[in-house]
Simulated scan of single mutants.
Amino acid sequence: MKTAHDLVIAAKSRIQEIPLADAEQAIREADVLLDVREAEEYAAGHLPGAIHASRGMLEFKLSNSPELSSRDLKIVLYCKTSGRAALAACALHDMGYLNVKSISGGFDAWAGAGKPIAKPVLPTFE
């Protein structure tokens, strides 16, 4: 029986995972930056410019978004540490997307390196 860890290792052998040092350049060159974490994770802070599409709904969101339907889109995606992103990258490859990259270490590595994080600004009522 395979574990989640086994599935992630297998996925990482099939995808293009980029080191954190190359992430900013890849993001600049990308058409889409996807955060595949859960909604509450995204709301707590995300990479600037990222679009949220949780891992569980990713295939459905892409299938129902005409602006994301081109299989030639350059996509960079990430999750908390890179496991869900690896699985998501495999799913996108299986859907026919040709240019998918995953950020090694994910959001935790990005934040740990002191890179910019976007957070929603809530209104004040003072």
Rank of each mutant, 00 (worst) to 15 (best):
A89H: 03
K101S: 13
V100F: 09
V76E: 05
Y78V: 08
N99D: 12
L98S: 14
L98H: 14
M95Y: 01
L68M: 08
S70G: 12
A88F: 05
V76S: 04
L73A: 09
L68S: 00
S70W: 09
D94T: 07
L68H: 04
V76W: 05
S102P: 01
D94M: 09
K74P: 01
M95A: 13
A91K: 12
A91C: 05
A88R: 03
K101Y: 01
S82T: 04
I103M: 04
H93M: 13
R84E: 09
E67N: 03
C79Q: 06
D72L: 08
S69W: 06
C79S: 15
S69L: 08
G96H: 12
V100I: 14
N99S: 12
G83P: 06
G96S: 10
A86F: 02
D72M: 08
A91R: 12
A85H: 02
R71Y: 03
D94C: 01
G96W: 12
A85F: 03
A86E: 05
L73D: 07
V76Y: 03
I103P: 00
Y97Q: 09
L87T: 05
N99M: 00
S102C: 08
L92E: 03
R71S: 11
A88P: 07
C90K: 00
A88M: 09
T81I: 14
H93G: 10
A89K: 04
D94W: 00
S82W: 07
E67L: 03
K74I: 03
L73C: 10
